[in-house]
């Protein structure tokens, strides 16, 4: 799988309705205000609606046009938005079959994403842990998981991180005798590993040679967490809780990037979603202000990385 350039941030969350898309728009807004060229890409294949949030009711071109080879590159799909310095590549949902692109289509899409000339590429992924979502998430060097303090959201967010972990491990097991270990067809068996610990134990016993590579992959899987819609200070603890479980059971470090308070202004705007009114309607609320801090951290972290380090992993 191709690794995307370092300015790419993939935003996922496992559960729908946690505010991924809205947060993505807020972050893009602030990154644009910080004089960066920002490209938003709706990675919710089959359920795209980011254009609606940006006031574009029916986009005249979508990512489907690229997958169907109607346009040669993603640059042809860039749509202007009302947000300063922010452009959008709208997701398509017209062709149901394209909700699940095949391997070749996915590879072509990721290569084309690699070629987009922008300071920040923000990929808004869909809910759930489908393989397409996981692959796009893993292809991005910067990974963001958005969750709310609701137990269902916490559980789904952890489930998503775990699914990404397993997807990563299964790639490391290709070509070994354990390549079917995480095959969904085998996971129903009683003897199938039930946890990351058991998977790594199995690898350590049966294919010890593959273990260092897998451990390196896991060590490089750095995920950032944002807790959205926080209503009380104690709800901010959700981030450390998920981080602790990831560290303990998946052996991976996660970083809490920030918390965004619950903001009724956002809900009011979400009910209308006017093209022009996003900033006007939400400027007074705490959410947009909180997302500035997060956007600033994102900008700092991206700048600190070597932007030319684009690597290919098997």
């Amino acid at each position: 799988m191709i690794q995307l350039p370092n300015h790419t941030w993939a935003i996922a969350g496992g559960k729908g309705g946690v505010g991924k898309s809205l947060l993505t728009v807020s972050l893009a807004y602030w990154l644009g205000r910080l004089k960066n060229d920002v490209t938003l890409l709706d990675g919710d294949l089959g359920g795209a609606n980011l254009h609606t949030m940006l006031g574009l009711r029916i986009p005249h071109c979508t990512i489907d046009d690229f997958i169907l080879r109607r346009v040669p590159s993603l640059d042809h799909l860039l749509l202007e938005t009302a947000l300063p310095n922010v452009k959008l590549i709208a997701g398509g949902s017209d062709v149901p079959a394209l909700a699940n692109p095949n391997f070749g289509q996915k590879t072509r899409l990721v290569r084309a994403m690699n070629a987009i000339d922008t300071d920040f590429l923000m990929v808004d992924l869909g809910a759930g842990s489908s393989l397409n979502t996981l692959d796009l998430f893993l292809a991005a060097p910067n990974k963001l998981v958005v969750l709310t303090p609701q137990p269902t959201s916490i559980q789904n967010a952890y489930g998503f991180i775990k699914a990404a972990f397993f997807r990563l491990v299964s790639r490391g097991l290709r070509g070994t005798s354990l390549q079917d270990l995480l095959d969904p067809a085998n996971l129903r068996d009683e003897g199938a590993p039930q946890s990351a610990e058991e998977v790594l134990q199995e690898v350590a016993i049966t294919e010890p040679g593959a273990l260092p590579d897998i451990e390196e992959r896991v060590a490089n899987l750095k995920i950032h967490i944002i807790v959205n819609m926080v209503r009380a200070p104690k709800e901010e603890r959700v981030g450390p809780v998920v981080s602790e479980v990831c560290r303990r059971f998946l052996g991976m470090e996660t970083t809490l990037l920030g918390c965004v308070p619950y903001d009724p202004q956002m809900e009011k705007w979400a009910a209308v979603m006017d093209r022009e009114s996003f900033v006007n309607r939400t400027a007074e609320g705490g959410a947009l202000r909180a997302s500035y801090d997060i956007a600033y951290r994102i900008a700092e972290r991206t700048k600190n990385k070597d932007s030319t380090a684009t690597k290919w992993i098997a």
């Binding site: 137990p151 916490i154 559980q155 952890y158 775990k162 039930q194 946890s195 990351a196 610990e197 959700v238 809780v241 998920v242 602790e244 479980v245 303990r248 059971f249 998946l250």
Partner: peptide, 11 residues
Amino acid sequence: RRDVQYLWNLI
């Protein structure tokens, strides 16, 4: 699963 139990306990 232990991890989910642990998650619930922490929550």
